[in-house]
């Protein structure tokens, strides 16, 4: 690599000044060069992610008084977050909606990822790009599209009425938890496919060949080899959908209605109308903790389950 050639082409470090020697030593150290290159990014991430998060946690132990903060340490916000039924109910609903959305999305996306990994031979790249593009198009507009589709006079209702299949619009479509699940599943589908696809693609095809030679049918082959080996992808995909969706507040606001509101709506309100920032910080941290515990439990359980099968 670079360091060896530098020493060859440059004069011996001994003949140089201490600065030259320091420079030569620096060039010969992989780790130092690496960290120097990493440092701007780490500084920015530290300033915009780690420090803000730390301040948020500190603030969650404060109390709001009018437009000022009482900075005396208190656990009051957390006590309130646990005791008040509305907070618990909203958190529970968020977790339920996100779990259902995660399960639905992963189940629906698995066959798609399987198809592209095993049955597409030409233009794999085109398929992957086709599946990924919608994820990066405007989130707000995709939610709005579902509002247009599910609305009281929306695409489905006016379409069905036009066909004479229904007399009255179906009111349950929009402003319900179901609408939130559908919209979220659609929004995150592209994110689910990629990890599953990558893990399927990595499977050594000769294993499947061997299983066939030993007389396994397609079902046994799938359950015995493909599914277990693709589980890491499934786990990553589930977490990549579950964690962000618990904290979503735009979808519930636009299509959820009063029954579809989630914990993030409440957090947002604490920083807006309710104006109780410490409470909002506590709720945000609380949500993060619960999500982290559930995610770790999920990883642990799936690992255990896989060990038992193997």
């Amino acid at each position: 690599m670079i360091e060896t050639t530098i020493e060859v082409s440059a004069p011996a470090p001994r003949s140089r000044s201490w600065r030259g020697r320091l420079y030569a030593w620096y060039l010969s150290s992989d780790a130092l060069k690496g960290f120097t290159l990493l440092s701007p990014t780490l500084l920015v991430m530290g300033f915009t992610m780690c420090i803000p998060f730390g301040i948020m946690v500190v603030m969650s132990f404060w109390t709001q008084i009018g437009f000022e903060f009482d900075t005396v340490f208190t656990l009051g916000n957390y006590a309130e977050a646990i005791e008040k039924p509305v907070y618990r109910a909203l958190l529970l609903r968020s977790l339920t909606i996100s779990s259902i959305c995660t399960v639905v999305t992963v189940l629906v996306s698995y066959p798609m990822a399987y198809y592209v990994a095993f049955h597409v031979r030409k233009r794999k790249m085109a398929w992957i790009i086709l599946m990924t593009v919608p994820f990066f198009s405007s989130y707000l507009l995709r939610i709005f599209a579902w509002k247009v589709i599910l609305g009281y006079n929306g695409v489905i209702n006016s379409g069905l009425k036009g066909l004479g299949l229904i007399e009255q619009p179906l009111a349950f479509l929009l402003y319900s938890p179901t609408a939130v699940v559908i919209t979220l599943a659609h929004a995150w589908a592209a994110f689910a496919i990629l990890p599953i696809f990558i893990s399927l693609e990595k499977i050594d095809r000769s294993l499947l060949e061997a299983a066939t030679d030993l007389g396994d049918g397609p079902v046994k082959r799938f359950l015995g080899i493909t599914l277990p080996l693709s589980m890491p992808g499934v786990i990553v995909a589930s977490l990549m959908i579950f964690i962000p969706t618990v904290g979503d507040y735009v979808t519930p606001t636009l299509v959820g209605g009063p029954d579809g509101l989630m914990i993030a709506n409440l957090i947002q309100a604490q920083f807006g109308l309710i104006n109780n920032w410490p409470m909002g910080a506590a709720l945000a941290f609380d949500m993060m903790l619960v999500v982290a515990v559930i995610s770790l439990l999920y990883i642990w359980l799936t690992r255990k389950a896989m060990e038992n099968i193997a």
Binding site: F53, I55, P244, Q268, A281, A284, M288
Partner: peptide, 11 residues
Amino acid sequence: VVPLIIMGVAL
């Protein structure tokens, strides 16, 4: 992966 609302609020 961290919910955007958390990073938005913290910032």
